[in-house]
């Protein structure tokens, strides 16, 4: 099935590109809607035939994996959901992988969000990942959802000294002092690792500026591809590792799968998305070449 999918994909893409190339050589323009349809096809076919590729973690991704892996069991890991549904397909695989890995290692996980939408996404993650894959983990003991607070970087500025100044209760209104997981937690400084998953403002950059740097707490992140290049300057001194776009997520999932056989059957949306990604990128690269040919042909005719 997989091979058939691959053959069909390449046939569709090959034939289409050839047609575009011929049009370009003739100096004819192509209606942009046809390009849209073509991209749609290049993305759909690999999805339908589940084409995947092998992934290997790059150093920047491996650094995050190793950090979670090497923290002593029972360490405190905070995952901040700094995104909304519109960014979810790209970054949700990352937050799920972080959550899975941290719980499997036996760390205590604190979920929160600097985006209002992050609160419900964290709740969804608890239902779809924790309850399903880690039924033995207890809310309030092994993990907690602190929810969202308005104030962007101001929230971080407060909770770096005192979490209870901002968070009196968890997301469901339970007094934080009644939750065993909050014992001994005064501020972000009591966390062993801060992870932000997002791609806008506030996001990883604010976590570095307002929590990681002033508190000397390790920060790692998962970022939407759009903002990933802007975060590279912080790596590796201020940001210990980064998952950039779906490629980063796929690499992390592959690393997790390799070391934790129990995750062999869990969904791996990151790896799954790399099939359509690869084909779409090939097509776009071909378009860039064809576009340039078309440009030079047109210029020669004019000149």
């Amino acid at each position: 099935m997989n091979n058939l999918g691959l053959i069909i994909s390449f046939l569709v893409i090959g034939a289409g590109l050839l047609w575009f190339l011929l049009r370009a050589l003739q100096g004819k323009e192509v209606e942009r809607r046809i390009i849209f349809v073509f991209i749609g096809l290049a993305v759909s076919v690999p999805i339908l035939f589940s084409i995947t590729f092998a992934e290997k973690a790059s150093p920047i991704v491996k650094a995050v994996y190793d950090k979670i892996e090497n923290l002593p069991d029972g360490s405190r890991v905070l995952i901040s959901y700094d995104y909304g549904p519109s960014m979810a397909p790209e970054v949700e695989p990352m937050s799920n992988a972080f959550l899975r890995h941290s719980l499997a290692k036996g760390h205590k996980v604190y979920l929160m969000g600097l985006w209002a939408t992050g609160q419900s996404i964290a709740a969804t993650a608890i239902d779809s990942v924790v309850r399903r894959e880690f039924p033995e983990k207890v809310y309030g003991v092994d993990f907690v959802n602190l929810g969202y607070k308005a104030g962007n970087q101001g929230v971080l500025n407060v909770i770096i000294t005192d979490i209870r100044k901002m968070y009196l209760t968890d997301v469901g209104g339970i007094d934080l002092d009644s939750l065993p997981i909050m014992d001994g937690i005064k501020s972000l400084r009591n966390m062993n690792l801060l992870m932000s998953v997002g791609g806008g403002f506030p996001g990883i950059k604010e976590w570095i500026q307002f929590a990681g740097d002033p508190g000397h707490i390790p920060v790692a992140g998962g970022s939407a591809a759009v903002s990933a290049p802007l975060l590279y300057p912080y790596y590796p001194t201020q940001l210990l590792g980064l998952l950039g776009g779906i490629k980063g997520a796929a690499e992390y999932e592959a690393e997790l799968k390799r070391h934790y056989p129990q995750f062999a059957d869990t969904p791996q949306p990151g790896i799954k998305m790399m099939g359509p990604q690869t084909l779409a990128h090939l097509v776009i690269m071909a378009f860039i070449i064809i576009g340039n040919i078309s440009f030079f042909v047109a210029r020669r005719r004019r000149g």
């Binding site: 999805i47 960014m87 397909p89 998305m273 990128h281």
Partner: peptide, 13 residues
């Protein structure tokens, strides 16, 4: 481009 394709993949899926 990678980010936008990811979002498209998400919706198509």
């Amino acid at each position: 481009v990678m980010g936008r394709v990811s979002l498209l993949v998400g919706r198509l899926t």
